[in-house]
Design a protein around this nucleic acid. Sequence first.
DNA 1: TTGTAAGCGTTATCAC
DNA 2: GTGATAACGCTTACAA
Lengths: 339, 339
Amino acid sequence: MAKTQITIIDIARELNISPSTVSRALRNHPDISRKTVEIVKECAERLSYKPNEMALNLRLGRNNIIGVIVPEIVHYFFSSIVQGIEETASAEGFNVMLFRSEESYEKELKITESLINARVAGVLASLSKETDRYEHYQQILDNDIKLVFYDRICIGIITDRVVVDDYAGALSAVEHLISTGCRRIAFYSSPLHLEISKNRRNGYLDALRKNSIPVDESLIFVCDTREKAMELTPQVLSLPEPPDSFFAINDHTATGILYAVKKAGLRVPEDISICGFSGGDLALACDPMLTTVEQHGYEVGKTAAKLLIDKIKGITHGQYTNRIIKTKLMVRGTTKTAP
Amino acid sequence: MAKTQITIIDIARELNISPSTVSRALRNHPDISRKTVEIVKECAERLSYKPNEMALNLRLGRNNIIGVIVPEIVHYFFSSIVQGIEETASAEGFNVMLFRSEESYEKELKITESLINARVAGVLASLSKETDRYEHYQQILDNDIKLVFYDRICIGIITDRVVVDDYAGALSAVEHLISTGCRRIAFYSSPLHLEISKNRRNGYLDALRKNSIPVDESLIFVCDTREKAMELTPQVLSLPEPPDSFFAINDHTATGILYAVKKAGLRVPEDISICGFSGGDLALACDPMLTTVEQHGYEVGKTAAKLLIDKIKGITHGQYTNRIIKTKLMVRGTTKTAP
DNA sequence: TTGTAAGCGTTATCAC
DNA sequence: GTGATAACGCTTACAA
């Protein structure tokens, strides 16, 4: 057990040279002779010297930490994003500090403060559902910390952004339903103030319009969890003019719909078609397997991290990029095959 | 945009007092007069001063970072653990630095080195499947960094440990199957060198023995993914003496079994019972919903983080705790109700 | 090629 | 109560 940590000074003393020479040797400074470098490195190894990053960071006025703000951790889409971020970050020599906002503005505020105090190099953020003020993100920029938004972006702040193509995803999903003969397509949405709701709703609406299907507002509901879907769907099915299909804002909701539809004695997809939005294993566990829009969270994470790191490195100084990650419709068993 | 960061010295200059007074006032040192404290805090607020944690860490020779090593991120059990860790850590004023070992020993080695260089306060680790040497963890301890293992623990190193009660979970699952009339219970396991395989296998075997059911080795298979289960199960079902039930090492595998069984025209649970191990939403998406053993990853994370933080704070100096998190059998639709 | 010394922002120690 | 000073471990002009 090392009583006290080994420093550059210990190595210097051991070898009767100066600390600066040790520092330079360890960093492969060109001025230092091959021999000194060797001796120093051997000694560092022997004493199992570990450079103190805290000192280095203070000295250099920077560190290699990327702060990641994520609304939820136990969540297929977000954990895929975190995985993409971690992979890119570690490949580029950055460490990931993870924070969960828990969909709370207050938490988000505390997190951004921690991030500023820690003087992280950059921040990757997705807004909590509650957040409708953005000063705390402006503060991040004011403190010279790079910032990239992903998925739940913030329009008011000028930064790079990475989003999923919600509009196109919804459009393709609903067009698929239409192409298989569906005409009365119910839409289960998240609360309407969220960008994803707006974009997917627009995709839904445009798909109907493009196919000359009248929009029936009474088929649009705010319902975005499995539980709510299990409760709401029986009522929807017993409407005078019930839907022939459902488009759900996420796969959890879709599984709730599926459950309720089967429980009502209807066949899927013969009587009722269902399409979700998310991707992941949940869709495969369903019976029939769920048709859904895959969001490619991993790509979102990788792209956002790359954008941020380029900003940190100064490669993309002054440029602001909006990146859109394509979705992919995964056609499975809860929708019919086109006639 | 703040050209340069505000320091304690800026505040001192602004108020014509010394930096040490400012420091003490901000920290509510008892020696400082109420008035000075007020003035200093007002000024700090006005200049939007943010304490530089890098300087503080260097000065104090410590930081508030907990390093977390996790084999996989997109994984219900592990992401639940991370959520428990993050929650506990942030409540106690610690930040979480997340690393994914990707089940690789090499990666794990690099991660522990980063962790030591960063002088993190503590580490929470779960071994990669590859790892069979432990010097890198001993190094962590040698560098005076606290260490707690969770789930995939390491026996060779003396530290706190938090594990799931795999044995009892398997025992209760198999006893449940037996109590509902099952006699020929197939076991789909992970590779046998893993602790979880051994423990759950022992639970499986003991449940049979306790109920005087002969063990049939030909009903034990290495099969731990959905894909493999979909491939293997039809063969198992067409055995001369096929099983009447399946106990799977995880829920993904169980969903594969369920798929294959239904495809073979058998009814679940009337003809075949299925029980998984994991918990989470996947089990609910199945039809019928999957009976499974809930592992309480969130609890594992919370417990491990608490143990680590107590160690860091010196509350539990010199003690080493082994904590076992209880599992819970969630009886659902893929098993029969007891007669 | 190597050494000296200053300084990153903070706090602990010792004076006053 | 408050101020001066040193120190945490490292890098980097500037000197030699």
